[in-house]
Design a protein around this nucleic acid. Structure first.
Lengths: 228, 228
DNA sequence: TCTTGGCCGATTGGATCCAATTGGACTTGA
DNA sequence: TCAAGTCCAATTGGATCCAATCGGCCAAGA
């Protein structure tokens, strides 16, 4: 895809996720194209793409609406992510890890150890953890070698709390975040060990539970979730 | 989406799945638009959509390629179906069934009983079973109340393998089909009973295993799989 | 003969134009 | 005053036009 088309897509995605385009709001092609200073063509393509991502849906016969995220649907999406990533972990276990994959995962674990070793978190640590978290999960997905899992998971990537990218739950309360990430990191360790030692069922079930790391654990630990 | 755009998308999907456009083949917009008798615009949209569905992927900087499908992806797609429908069964159990849903499922079971009671199958029975099978599964999916599961399953169905449609594997050998459908039907019974009596884990695991009914059981029973 | 550079054709992305469809508003009649 | 039918404006889908870019081919020089 071209640079401009990519820019339009990224911008719209941001406008939706940030809430600047409010849920339920109807989007017409012409106003948006004027707002972004392009013609209708890249907007039409972006709307279709965002529909596939689940951020927009058709508003009757004419136009698109920004998806309103029902909290119960977020819970469902988290369940879906759990079973799919669990399956990916099992498949990865059955396939075995290549040495490169293994190195990448070990590196993620080491970086996590370093972050948590000091006994507390600073704000930058959240971003660092976010990066290694995304890398850890995408590496396992790749190791599963399953296009089917990948395609099924892709739709969750932009949903608040249901995507791997939803790490930061409550940046205000770094103490709670420390507890939560420590636990999530321990799950990463277990998953890695299970995959390495061929314990497919264990890898699957821990990864499935791990999908709750983002929001439920935060609530259990007393954080007040804010979606950004 | 419009009628024509829809037609183009369906046609291309069919051309890819049927293998008429061979895996690895590069697709340019102009030849395809001429072949289907439309302009480039709907083709461009369809290419993007098919990329999201996993049927096409970008061929370098220019154009798209038909995805080449590893046979192991069929097994993966079945696994994905298993975990997703299993999840749907668990959610349905947790939500409980409405009386109407319960009636529909019972009706499916009764129809299946009738088909199998005579101890053998005739060719029309296959279609009848196919219909009730689709109804049974879609009813449970609806009862799960999870849009996320529904969307993920729909994507799985569009992959070039393993949709529910491939239930009828070997119409030639009705004896093997009788065994296969008898077993699958028994699984339906168990799933229904588990959901009714609130045994969520049981419903989930039996449904997950049941995903193998389409292909593996047929192979185990000695049918020769026909790829259609 | 092999490599490198430039040119030309092919193909895609973006803009604009045209047609078709829909939704709403206005009018008219009961 | 309300309902129904018709007409108009707005918006979307499809086609075509233009520009930018990529790749391949050919020639020239080392």
């Amino acid at each position: 895809m071209s640079k401009q088309g990519q820019r339009v897509l990224v911008t719209l995605r941001h406008l939706i996720i940030s809430g600047e385009l409010s849920p339920g709001q109807r989007l017409a092609e012409i106003p948006i194209s004027e707002r972004l200073g392009v013609s209708r063509t890249p907007i039409r393509l972006a709307f279709r793409a965002l529909e596939h991502e689940g951020l927009l849906h058709k508003a009757g016969a004419r136009g698109y609406m920004v998806r309103e995220t029902d909290p119960s649907e977020i819970a469902n999406a988290i369940e879906v992510r759990g079973v799919l990533e669990g399956l990916a972990s099992r498949l990865a276990t059955e396939n075995g890890l290549g040495t490169e994959t293994q190195d990448t995962l070990e590196d993620c674990l080491t970086r996590g150890d370093r972050l948590l070793a000091k006994g507390y978190l600073i704000e930058d640590d959240i971003d660092e953890y976010h990066d290694l978290n995304v890398l850890f999960h995408s590496t396992i997905l790749a190791a599963s070698g399953s296009l089917a899992v990948e395609v099924a998971l892709k739709r969750n990537d932009n949903l608040p709390f249901a995507s791997v990218a939803s790490v930061a739950i409550d940046k205000e309360n770094l103490e709670i975040e420390y507890k939560r990430l420590s636990f999530a990191h321990m799950q990463h360790r277990i998953i890695f060990e299970a995959i390495l030692s061929g314990q497919a069922a264990r890898a699957e079930s821990v990864m499935r539970e791990h999908a709750n790391a983002a929001i439920r654990y935060a609530e259990m630990l007393g954080a007040k979730p804010s979606s950004a």
